[in-house]
Write a protein that binds this DNA or RNA. Structure first.
Length: 257
DNA sequence: ATGTCCCTTCACAAGGGA
């Protein structure tokens, strides 16, 4: 089985690239983030033509997550129990069972800056996610993949000195991820196709991608049974190249059936 | 450390978010 996660930064703007990438990569399951469309506007027709079932959760202008699967898409859940809003609910998590694994696509709040109320919201959201995952983890194999908006270590940012007072790297955010792992989730390492760091995000500005000044903030967290089946995992930086890319690259994971 | 992109609207420019 091959699965992937990708923050597409608008599924409408990215649709031609998404369809090409689905054709060439041929993943069985895909977790999408930042679709930026409501459920009714999700381009399900085009994706269905490629053999995928779709489940979308969106609110239009911001956020939005979705799951694509060609190996079954059962028991879809939008959001999770106890999920906080700001203050209203935001479309940041969707999960379903595909091929015997529960996949959850997550778009963790950005946080903006450590003194912003959105930062406290980010930490509340991650703590609530941890609590909500407990029954899922007891029920079977789980993959929680998406844009976590946290760089787990200093090696995951291109210049740690620049990020000392920024969101994405604070001890509290990193602790929140450690608490997810403490539930029994493993950070599945993805290899970079170029360079030493498996960055997944490069700012559009200032030629950051070409200088490989990126961050590893998209992550695949999997239960041990899934992690043990991994045969390969990579950051598809090819998808970040060229005209009209997302600012994030997909992570593609192969596991033994 | 800011050279972009995407979305929306009291829309054909500007602001907000990342």
């Amino acid at each position: 089985m091959r699965f992937a996660t990708w923050n597409v930064n608008s599924v409408k703007a990215r649709l031609p690239r998404l369809l090409d990438w689905l054709g060439s990569t041929a993943p069985d399951v895909v977790c999408l983030q930042e679709t930026k469309v409501g459920e009714d506007a999700f381009p399900a027709g085009e994706v269905t033509e490629l053999g995928y079932e779709t489940a979308a959760y969106g609110q239009g202008r911001w956020n939005g997550v979705a799951l694509l699967s060609r190996i079954g898409l059962e028991d879809v859940r939008r959001g999770f129990d106890g999920e906080p809003g700001f203050p209203d609910p935001e479309a940041r998590a969707i999960s379903a069972r595909c091929g015997g694994i529960r996949f959850m696509s997550v778009y963790v709040p950005n946080g903006r800056t450590p003194d912003d109320p959105h930062y406290a919201y980010k930490l509340r959201w991650l703590a609530a996610l941890r609590d909500a995952l407990v029954p899922d983890l007891a029920a079977g194999p789980v993959v929680v993949a998406g844009d976590y908006n946290v760089a787990p270590t200093d090696a995951d940012v291109w210049d740690p000195a620049l990020f000392t007072a920024s969101t994405h790297v604070t001890p509290a955010e990193r602790t929140a991820l450690a608490e997810l792992r403490a539930l029994g989730l493993t950070d599945v390492p993805a290899r970079p196709l170029k360079g030493d760091h498996p960055y997944t995000y490069w700012d559009y500005r200032a030629g950051m991608f070409h200088q490989n000044k990126g961050m590893r903030i998209d992550l695949v967290y999997a239960t041990a049974d899934v992690a043990a089946r991994v045969t390969d995992a990579l950051v598809d930086r090819e998808a970040r190249k060229g005209k009209g890319p997302s600012d994030h690259a997909p992570i593609v994971v192969d596991i033994e059936d």
